[in-house]
Design a protein around this nucleic acid. Structure first.
Lengths: 202, 202, 202, 202
DNA sequence: CATGAATGAGATTTCATTCAT
DNA sequence: AATGAATGAAATCTCATTCAT
């Protein structure tokens, strides 16, 4: 027991530091972007020094990717939970709709996902690997609404639907952040709802 | 120097250098992003050295903003020309639709506009100024389709419509670049068409 | 603790760790040099972590010096044993010759001694102290061949002879390691023999 | 002419900076060793900043190698000049002897050559290439004393002789720097002379 | 005694920008 | 206007060392 206690204490501390660093990375990467984000700022935001960062991650890219895996997983998990609480396909569709509208409030997440995709597009070596991983996590949540999808653009592909909804959401949230006068918060939500209905409703 | 004066050889050469630098900036900023883009790469791509850059622009940010003003103007001008060739409101709506679908092919422009908006959002001091300028240029082209817009999300606001269409386009093109298997080029165009119809069609 | 006390389990274990660390330090310092050698590599090579190192040594320099004291002592002890087994001065001279020729095989030791002298020369504060200690250990072994030394370069100074023989050996072994084609292993041994004869033979 | 003047001025300035950096590198690398030498110290010693260093060399290793090529060339050139001034083989042998004895005064050079060989031995990837280049430069100076060499250790190989003489010199100069009491400057020169005679004299 | 997470000084390196030509 | 050498601020990363366990 006591022989095991030492590594556990260490491990717990380590895990806590890692978690704090990832949480800070979310803030800083969303605020400054991948390139402009300074490791020192992330570490300081987490209440640590650069050394703690390098004890937990190989480099900036490695933290960025760890953060994004966590974000994709968390996002998918949340959606999954909501869908599982539904009984019918219609309910699921409504839950999906609601979920996307709500996510307009999480600007940090949208900025992060844009940053992530830009990063991937600019790093062709890892792009395919990331995209595949991302797609697999997304596909692991089967909302089983494919049969409900319209005959138009989506053609029964739930994957394309969810990817497009996210992409549209990210683009619109950025536009709203950029010029809230040209696209107000209310318009943003209403437009996203219209887009959802156009793409996902029969 | 009067605006009407015929520029001499020197001035013509300078203008040509400036144009080449902006053209190169488009390529490099789209490829690498604002932060990672190196002045030297831009100058080299234009067939010059850093000195030529600093003879024509104050700094990196200034070139970036010059490039974007040029892009917004050019984009708006092209759209304006198309709309002017139309007779009826219906024709204009169709031209607008066609225009947006075609722009999916210009990935460089989409990357640039995303980069631009991200830059603006991250530089609050100049964000409002940029957004206002952008909005004004956009508004200068009156497609006069407002009366045709639906009662739903857009509420007769042509500005919000055009901003949203662009934002959606940028988001979807990025998504396609990131994972062309989850969202193919054909799906991209069809979905964008559906979104246009949902937002702009009565 | 008296020097005669039988060490307990704890102390034995500690002594073993210290010995392992010194043995690993030999390998790593010889391989990488003092500056480039990493404490972590030494500790890992010894099957421990940095903590074990700091439990046994004050710092990197302290381990380096401990290692070198041990090396000098061991080297001198080995030579001493050989000389003691000889009866006449001639035999001793032959044993000394044989000893130096054999040491060409210990490249690690030569690298270490070069590293050590370079370190000393670059740390003037401790140079004199180290050189004195080194000289004393060396002088503690009296081969009593001084009377046999030639009237030429060495002038009956056994100390200068042994120091020069070592220095020559270190220089030549390094040269052979650097370019074995310009100075082959056989040439190395023969040349060292000739040098010995020139310096030590009447 | 004036069109050519500009690059010439630039080139001249550049060459001067490069030369100054190499001269400073000699001092600093000899004083501190490759690993401990700081680029900032070298640049400052040359009257410049780190930026000037990076405008002229790729990295520390690259400067180190440039310095050593220059040193080997200069050293060989000096020796060559002396030998060319000789008429007979005997004179050449005497000139060679004199040259090596004089080099005991250039401690900086000896430290540098030791550092260089240690570096090469520790970087196996470039060791062979460096050793070959070094050997070729050395061999380019034909002292044509090979026929005079003894039948003993050197076997008519001028290359092995010169390599060994250098190696011995480096080793002995280091030993003298380390402990001038065990090996005085006079002993150093006399011993080196004896070694020369033993290896090179018939 | 030993572990290993964390610190923090310091080194290398990059690159926007300046300036003499 | 353009060149390109040089500057110097700032960023990443390494690693000897400390310290709680």
């Amino acid at each position: 027991m006591s022989a095991l206690a030492i590594p556990n204490k260490h491990q717990q501390k380590s895990e806590a530091t890692r978690r704090k660093l990832i949480a800070s990375a979310r803030r800083i990467f969303a605020r400054d972007g991948f390139e402009a984000a300074r490791i020192e700022d992330i570490a300081a935001d987490a209440g640590h020094t650069r050394g703690a960062f390098y004890a937990n991650f190989e480099n900036k890219e490695s933290l960025f990717l760890a953060l994004l895996e966590q974000q994709v997983t968390e996002h998918t998990g949340r959606l999954s939970k909501r869908l599982q609480a539904c009984d019918s396909g219609e309910e699921k569709l409504a839950a999906l709709r609601q979920y996307y509208l709500e996510r307009t409030a999480d600007r940090q997440w949208c900025m992060l996902m844009l940053e992530f995709k830009l990063f991937a597009v600019r790093h062709p070596r890892i792009r395919a690997k990331l995209a595949r991983a991302h797609r697999q996590i997304r596909s692991s949540v089967k909302s089983q609404i494919a049969p409900l999808l319209p005959r138009t653009s989506i053609h029964g592909s739930e994957d394309a639907l969810r990817a497009s909804l996210e992409a549209t959401l990210h683009g619109l949230v950025l536009q709203h952040a950029y010029d809230p006068d040209a696209l107000t918060a209310e318009q943003l939500v209403r437009i996203l709802g219209d887009i959802f209905d156009a793409l996902a409703q029969r």
